[in-house]
Amino acid sequence: MTLYSHKPADTSSARHSATQSFPFRETAESGTDPDELSEALSTPKASIKITADGNMPIAYSCNFISLGDVSVGDCAYEGTIFSKREGISEKMAIFLPTEGNMSFGGRQGPIYSVPGRGTILEPGRARGTAIFGTRRHLCLFIDQASISRRLTHMLERTISADLDIHPDIDLTAGAGLALQKIVANLHGGLTGNGPLRRSPLAVSSLSDAAIYLLLESCPNRYSDELGASAPMPAPRHVKWAIDFMHEHIAEPISLSEIAAAAKVSTRTLQQGFRQFRNTTPIAYLHEIRMVAAHRDLLEAGSKQAVADIALRWGFTHLGRFAAEHKKRFGQLPSQTLKV
């Protein structure tokens, strides 16, 4: 394989499609300069430093397409190339190699990425990489907060712990082969003037398919729960309690008042929520208030202060509110307010 040994004039600029109605950005980079590759691969929260082996030449060609909370890429490299990451990305990274080997510095030893085996890295799981010779891979990047939102919807409860997903997936058959085809179709269909640029619904469906395929097919902390039978419909008293919480979401209601509205004892209400919602009534109330506060932060812009929004929804400890908001939505309240 031969890569460009120079950087074309138009590859450093991002191209936007005028025909799509979804967040979209394409960036292409190629060349031989390690510093330019460092800049291309770095993000505001996680800088990457690329170095080569002595004076030996390197070459690279990378094309990345961002779709909001999901990004796909097609990258090719030649030479002995090392990278070191500073900071922690908030994205899960999946590498789907088609040629050559690559290693990642994992917490418990190196993780090897070879053709036929995909590599899945959660944020903070690898700080450095090494490539020796020719390497090409597709890659998929997913915001961790987006994964948590989907899990919350699937399991009907708040997700706070890491996914702890197995870092290896077979690409020669089954779910791994399907995942590789989905990412290849996404990237190919969005590159240049690809047909997917004019079909945001198809893009959304393919992105969702890739995420759900990972969650349901790759061993992770929630595999047993995801594989369990769907829960029975919640009984009337749990539904009544949930309706009462939503009707009085901004008011200082107590567990006893919720139970009274549901026409059961507090003990029966607790049991119902544990059995049918895998949480407690107060934790459920806390969650819907957090979602409401997040919605207000998104809509407020610079018109309101974080403290005012937090207090409106009953969060009196601002430090704890900020920490819980970042765990739930992937960013601090102040960052959401500026979006």
Score class of each variant (00 low, 15 high):
332 L>T: 12
115 P>E: 00
111 I>M: 07
168 D>W: 06
319 G>W: 01
30 S>Y: 08
272 G>F: 02
12 S>R: 14
138 L>F: 13
281 P>H: 03
148 S>T: 11
93 A>F: 08
62 C>N: 10
259 A>D: 00
298 L>P: 02
168 D>A: 11
97 P>M: 03
338 K>C: 10
309 I>P: 03
235 P>A: 03
256 S>N: 11
216 E>N: 12
321 F>C: 09
79 G>S: 05
23 P>Y: 06
48 I>K: 10
65 I>D: 00
47 S>R: 14
193 N>H: 13
38 S>W: 03
39 E>N: 11
145 A>P: 07
321 F>P: 04
252 P>R: 08
190 L>W: 00
204 S>E: 12
221 R>E: 01
17 S>F: 06
89 S>Y: 01
232 M>F: 09
21 S>Y: 04
169 I>G: 01
299 E>Q: 15
32 T>Q: 05
132 F>A: 14
198 R>S: 13
10 D>K: 09
201 L>Q: 12
35 D>T: 12
315 F>L: 07
55 N>P: 02
155 L>V: 09
337 L>F: 06
156 E>R: 14
267 R>M: 12
294 H>T: 04
134 T>K: 13
206 L>A: 08
328 R>V: 08
210 A>K: 04
338 K>G: 04
61 S>K: 11
196 L>E: 00
126 A>M: 05
204 S>L: 07
185 N>H: 10
156 E>V: 13
292 A>S: 14
175 A>S: 15
332 L>W: 11
296 D>T: 10
88 I>R: 08
271 Q>D: 12
37 L>T: 02
219 P>T: 05
294 H>P: 03
295 R>K: 14
147 I>W: 02
278 N>Y: 08
167 P>N: 03
335 Q>N: 14
239 K>H: 09
29 E>T: 09
170 D>G: 05
266 T>D: 05
264 V>W: 00
36 E>C: 09
314 G>N: 10
153 H>K: 14
87 G>E: 00
155 L>A: 05
219 P>V: 05
46 A>C: 12
191 T>R: 15
318 L>Q: 15
222 Y>G: 03
237 H>P: 02
173 A>Q: 15
91 K>G: 01
173 A>N: 11
111 I>L: 13
85 R>S: 07
161 A>P: 05
234 A>E: 07
198 R>L: 06
28 A>V: 12
99 E>T: 11
165 I>G: 01
155 L>F: 08
38 S>R: 07
5 S>V: 10
68 G>E: 00
295 R>D: 11
164 D>E: 15
238 V>P: 01
229 S>Y: 04
1 M>T: 11
50 I>P: 01
168 D>F: 12
188 G>Q: 04
279 T>M: 04
114 V>W: 00
22 F>T: 05
216 E>T: 15
57 P>H: 04
65 I>E: 00
224 D>A: 13
103 S>I: 11
10 D>T: 12
176 G>M: 02
119 T>C: 08
271 Q>I: 09
243 D>N: 14
283 A>S: 15
112 Y>H: 11
212 Y>T: 14
117 R>M: 12
206 L>I: 02
11 T>A: 08
135 R>I: 01
7 K>N: 10
25 R>E: 12
146 S>E: 13
242 I>G: 01
263 K>Y: 08
327 K>N: 13
124 G>K: 08
